[in-house]
Design a binder for these strands. Structure first.
Length: 905
DNA sequence: CCTCTGCTGAGAGGA
């Protein structure tokens, strides 16, 4: 039986004498995890400390190593345990068949285990500083891709040509030619092909390539290069003339064996394929001509791998930093020795390799610590998402919008290159977070336990079209939780602190004040603050901060500033958190650059699905001739990309004179660093009175660098104060409440904006209660929590009134706080009315906005407590704003009460 | 209690 629970106290390891001799054991007090105990904990009716709640699990011998990692509160799983009666109590103990898994829901990747077994410090450094673009790695990846193609039956030459072409940009940045790369890949691939051919002649092989595997029991995930007759085959690009595979390679294969075991296999053979071994390299001991080395994986190795995995999970849960002493690796043979010593020295960390260099100042060490912890907390949240793949039922996943269940499989079509196109039909109208271009887990029923594969969503309407390596008969799609963003945040912070220049850090840490060059030029002649903002941005030696409240033309200001920089011959990076914001800013910039710079010197970097269709002509194609690809990027005077893409290997090779970051108040500090790390100077543009960064955990990431710097260096900031969007009556509340009354209409025409200005619209045709630019409609609250159907019905009537007065439905937007209410309203109103959450409305505007407050009783709840959300909602309309809600509930909060007074005036 | 965008990935190798 399996025992699972939470460690309920301190664990001690001791020795005992048994009939087999001296043995080690650890007695772990465990509070079993079962549904009953969870329910009781919630209700609080049964004391948690109740003795009967806790049992004891005895871990024997080698498993005591894992026991020593345990802290109270950690999760523990013991498989195949035996039940024992001791003094009238039921206890458990490991058996010869047992595995002990620490924090099983923390999925450790196979690569992590492989790095860790070499040296835990190597694992840490890899996580902290990432792997830069280098040729051996790109070549390795290419050989793997070709291997996969061969297994899927693709022609060798065709595969090599296509794969090299796909990586044109990377190869170009590395200065490689297609011919030289092709030649090298061919050498490795020939070894593979020969070996495959041998197999085909002698036995009936069954193959599967590139399989993504997740084990909920062992807490491991990874992607096997290939599986042959149920056993893992691991491909290596290097040479190995020894008799045995390298130990870390064995460990890697053993990880896949564990993963395969959970998926119904029973494997004890692993194959390592060293593809640089050629026929000429006859092994002296064995006489081998083949690149393949088979080895037997004993139970001991598999258990050892799980113990390694436990060390990683425990370290991550505790937030510890490895020192290298955990391993008996020899530092002098390590490729990363120098890096390791520098990082240890700069961050003042204990390390087996020793430290070199001067430690960072205390405030930087403290900063590193704080943000390292915050980012790792985010990472653990991503891991919680993985765990939900098996902890939640399909229906729960669907309710959380994280899965589409009930798909009907239609067909699979083979694609060129051995991949597959999968078609399925949606049988319900369920919503989900999934979008076209997303990478998902496509399964025939369960994302972990069933047949499952990583797939790309090509189309998502009534029919779902996916592409994948294997032909899964897909009936369900799950969001695939990715650590990529977290990885990049950590690397960005590392680069800012350890690679950033000293002057930059003086500014970031408030040790020096930003300086500005005198500029005697007028850029914008009808708006002083905009002109000042451009002047500051252009003249900044370090940084400038532009605070742009709603409708104040910050996008235009950015575009004008970039044009001025480009005219001075500078190379500029344009960035923002979302693809939408990047494309908006780029659109405005292209207008400014018309006639100033060739459009082929403006490049948009990002994925095809992320970039808006009309910006596609500017998108940097990754595939093609290396020289061409790299020229397009290097010659670009303006490069536009999301901050996340700025952290990619390709972008990290680029450098700029200036970085302009739009919507900077929505970015975490490390997120902002990913962009500004690439430039000499930076300009942040945003509004910290609107929505803050989206983070999973509450921590230091919730305050943006923009907001912190506005406080720290007010002299570097400019606030745009004239808005071009709202009728004056609409603007008043936001101006007073959020901008100290400093926001005002840019022109009398803006101030007087009215529905009557629109063609065919007559304000007098509206019911009297809606004739004012701001109106309030009182609705008795519906007691349900996140929806209000009365309110939705009332909103539908309001829309009819506006339509009757001549307004086009596409000029109306409806904003609600909850997604549930958004879909409730969508069911009541015609399709061409835009209905969305506040968060998604940020950055856009409409002629008429209707806000559904969906609040009853009290306004408790984070959604209402963050007033920045109301600021966004109330500042979207140009000519008319209608607030719909329960006045009693709204009046219970002073800010909302003031809002009511204003709306009803 | 809620809001929710990014990312192809995970692993590529060198004594």
């Amino acid at each position: 039986m399996h025992v699972r629970g939470t460690v309920a106290g301190e664990v001690e390891v001791r020795s005992v004498s048994t009939s087999y001799g001296e043995s080690e054991l650890a007695e772990v007090p465990l509070r079993p995890a079962d549904d009953a105990s969870t329910a009781r904990g919630d209700g609080g009716t049964v004391a948690v400390a109740d003795g009967r709640e806790t049992t004891t699990v005895t871990l024997w011998n080698k498993w005591t190593e894992s026991a020593a990692l345990l802290e109270p509160g950690m999760e523990l799983l013991v498989t195949n345990a035996k039940e024992e009666e001791y003094r009238g109590e039921t206890q458990y103990a490991t058996t010869g068949e047992s595995y002990v898994v620490v924090e099983p829901s923390f999925l450790v990747s196979v690569t992590s285990i492989r790095n860790w077994v070499e040296c835990p410090r190597l694992y840490y450094l890899n996580k902290l500083s990432g792997v830069p673009l280098n040729y051996p790695v790109v070549k390795g990846t290419l050989v793997h891709e070709v291997f996969g193609d061969l297994l899927r039956g693709r022609d060798l030459e065709e595969s090599i040509e296509a794969r090299v072409e796909e990586r044109g940009l990377q190869l170009g940045l590395l200065g490689e030619t297609p011919e030289a790369v092709t030649e090298e890949i061919r050498e490795n691939a020939t070894a593979i092909e020969g070996w495959l051919e041998q197999g085909r002649l002698t036995e009936d092989d069954s193959w599967r390539s590139e399989q993504l595997l997740i084990s909920e029991t062992f807490g491991i995930r990874g992607r096997a290069d290939a599986v042959r007759r149920g056993a893992p085959v691991e491909l290596k690009t290097g040479k190995n003339l020894k008799k045995e595979p390298r130990f870390k390679d064995k460990v890697q294969a053993a990880c896949y064996a564990l993963l395969l075991e959970e998926h119904g296999g029973d494997v004890d053979i692993g194959t390592l394929l060293y593809t640089k071994n050629s026929a000429l390299d006859r092994n002296e001991e064995t006489g081998d001509l083949t690149p393949a080395k088979e080895f037997t994986m004993g139970e001991g190795l598999l258990k050892y791998v799980v113990r390694l995995r436990n060390e990683i999970a425990a370290t991550e849960m505790a937030g510890d930093i490895p020192t290298g002493y955990e391993a008996d690796a020899k530092c002098e043979y390590c490729f990363e020795q120098d890096t390791c010593m520098v990082v240890s020295g700069r961050l003042d960390q204990e390390s087996k390799a020793g430290q070199i260099g001067q430690s960072l100042p205390d405030e930087e060490l403290e900063y590193f610590d704080r943000f390292y912890r915050a980012i790792e907390e985010e990472r653990r949240e991503v891991h919680r998402e993985y765990a939900k793949l098996w902890e939640q039922t399909a229906a729960e996943r669907a309710d959380d919008d994280r899965a589409l269940i009930d798909l009907e499989f239609v067909e699979k079509r083979p694609l060129e290159g051995g991949r597959w196109e999968l078609h399925a039909r949606r049988t319900g109208g369920a919503t989900s977070k999934l979008r076209e271009g997303d990478l998902v887990l496509a399964s025939d029923g369960h994302p972990v336990r069933g047949e499952s594969e990583l797939a790309m969503i090509e189309r998502l309407d009534d029919e779902v079209v996916l592409t994948a390596d294997e032909p899964v008969e897909v009936t369900r799609l799950d969001v695939y939780p990715s650590e990529l963003t977290t990885d990049r945040l950590l690397v960005a912070m590392h680069d800012a602190l350890l690679k950033g220049d000293e002057r930059r850090k003086d500014i970031l840490f408030g040790r020096a004040d930003p300086e500005f060059e005198e500029i005697d030029e007028t850029f914008i002649d009808n708006n002083d603050r905009q002109n000042e903002a451009v002047t500051k941005a252009v003249g900044a030696r370090d940084c400038a901060l532009i605070h742009g409240p709603p409708g104040t033309g910050k996008t235009y200001t950015i575009a004008r500033a970039i044009r001025a920089m480009v005219e001075r011959g500078e190379r500029v990076l344009l960035s923002a958190f979302t693809n939408r914001a990047v494309d908006n800013a780029l659109e405005a910039l292209l207008e400014q650059l018309d006639g100033v710079v060739d459009t082929d010197r403006v490049v948009r970097v990002g994925s095809e699905s992320g970039i808006r269709d009309d910006m596609e002509p500017y998108r940097l194609e990754r595939a093609g001739d290396p020289e061409d690809r790299v020229a397009e990027l290097q010659n670009a005077q303006v490069v536009a990309a999301t901050t996340s893409t700025c952290g990619s290997r390709v972008m990290k090779e680029q450098s700029f004179d200036a970085a302009l970051v739009d919507e900077a108040a929505q970015l975490t500090e490390p997120g902002t660093c990913a962009a500004i790390n690439l430039a000499e100077r930076f300009v942040l543009v945003g509004d910290h009175e609107q929505l803050p960064p989206v983070v999973r955990a509450e921590n230091d990431l919730t305050e943006s660098l923009f907001e912190r710097l506005v406080d720290c260096h007010p002299e570097a900031g400019v606030m745009l104060d004239r808005q071009y969007r709202m009728n004056q009556r609409i603007q008043v509340f936001a101006s007073n409440e959020f901008y100290d009354g400093r926001l005002r209409p840019a022109t009398p025409a803006v101030a007087a904006r009215d529905l009557d200005d629109l063609e065919g619209v007559s304000r007098d045709a509206l019911p009297e209660s809606l004739r004012d630019p701001v109106s309030f409609v009182d609705v008795d609250g519906d007691p349900s929590r996140y929806t209000d159907s009365d309110e939705a019905a009332r909103i539908a009537e309001l829309i009819e009134s506006y339509e009757a007065a001549g307004l086009d439905r596409t000029d109306i937007g409806v904003i609600a706080p909850f997604r549930a209410q958004v879909s409730e309203i969508s069911n009541h109103v015609p399709d061409d009315v835009a209905v969305d959450t506040v968060d998604r409305f940020q950055g856009s505007s409409q002629e008429v906005i209707v806000v559904s407050f969906t609040a009853t009783g009290s306004l408790e709840g984070p959604i209402f407590e963050d007033y920045r959300r109301i600021n966004v909602a109330l500042t979207r309309p140009k000519r008319a704003l209608v607030l719909v809600g329960d006045s009693t509930a709204l009046a219970s909060d002073p800010v909302y009460e003031r809002m009511l007074e204003w709306a009803s005036a």
